[in-house]
Simulated scan of single mutants.
Amino acid sequence: MRIMHQVVTFDAADVAAESRFWAGVLGGEVDEDGDWHMVLVDGAPRVGVQLAPGHVPPEWPVGPTQQQIHLDLWVEDFAEAHEHVMALGATVLKPAAGNTAGDDFQVYADPAGHPFCLCWLVQPS
C-alpha cells in the first residue's frame, strides 16, 4: 500500500472560517468543494475541513466534551507565531508554563474550538 498524502481533517460548523484559519496558519490556500475544503501548501494537501453542522467544540482541559485530537506546531519565534494565530482568530486556552529550560508550549483553540499548541525550545538566558 502506498499512501499518497496524509491529511488531518477537522469537523466544523463553519467550513469557510475553519479552512481560512488553517490556510493562514500554514501559509497555504483553500480549495473549496462544497461542504469539504482542503488546505493546500505548495500545492500539496495538508489539512481538510468538512461540514459538521452539529459540531460541538471540545471543552479542554475539563468538561463533558473532551478533545479528540490536536496539533503541536513547533515554531522558531513564539511571539511572532502567537501574534499570527491570534490575528487569524485563535483563542488562548492555556498560557505557557514559563519554563526556563527545555521545551514550552501554549494551548490555543482554532475558530471551531479545536485545540492546538504552539511549541518551542526555550533558549537559556
Rank of each mutant, 00 (worst) to 15 (best):
G102C: 09
D31Y: 14
G102N: 06
W36K: 02
T91S: 15
T65Q: 15
E80A: 15
W120I: 07
A101N: 02
Y108H: 13
G98Q: 05
V92Y: 00
R2E: 05
V25D: 00
H114E: 00
R20L: 11
H82L: 14
D77M: 05
A87H: 06
Q67R: 15
W60M: 13
H84A: 11
A109W: 10
W60L: 11
A79C: 06
W22R: 03
D31E: 15
D14T: 13
S19N: 09
V25L: 01
V107I: 14
Q50W: 03
P61V: 12
Q66C: 11
V62N: 02
T100K: 08
H70W: 13
H5T: 07
A90W: 04
V85P: 03
M4F: 08
A44S: 11
E83D: 15
D42V: 05
A112T: 06
M38C: 13
E76I: 06
A112N: 09
I69K: 00
A109V: 13
D104L: 05
D31Q: 15
A23F: 01
G27M: 00
A112G: 12
W60G: 04
V56I: 15
Q68C: 10
T100N: 06
E29T: 14
G113Y: 08
F105Y: 12
W22S: 03
D33A: 12
K94C: 03
F78R: 10
L88T: 05
V122P: 01
G63T: 04
W120R: 08
F21S: 09
A87G: 07
D11W: 07
W120G: 09
W36Q: 08
S125R: 14
T9A: 11
D42R: 14
E18V: 10
L40D: 11
G102Q: 09
A23S: 05
A81W: 06
A101H: 08
G27F: 00
A12C: 11
Q50V: 07
W36R: 10
D104A: 08
W22G: 02
Q123E: 12
C117R: 02
T9I: 12
L121Y: 02
L93F: 04
K94I: 10
P95W: 09
C117S: 05
A12G: 12
V39S: 09
P111L: 10
A12D: 01
A112P: 05
W36M: 11
W22V: 04
F116T: 04
L51Q: 07
D11E: 10
L26F: 13
H114Q: 07
E29Q: 13
Q67P: 09
L26K: 01
V122Y: 02
F78N: 01
G28Y: 03
A16L: 05
M38N: 06
D33K: 07
R20Q: 14
D77I: 03
E76W: 01
W60Q: 12
L93H: 07
R46E: 00
F116R: 02
V92I: 13
G102T: 06
V62C: 01
H5W: 13
A81E: 06
W60V: 15
T9H: 07
D33P: 01
E59G: 12
V15C: 11
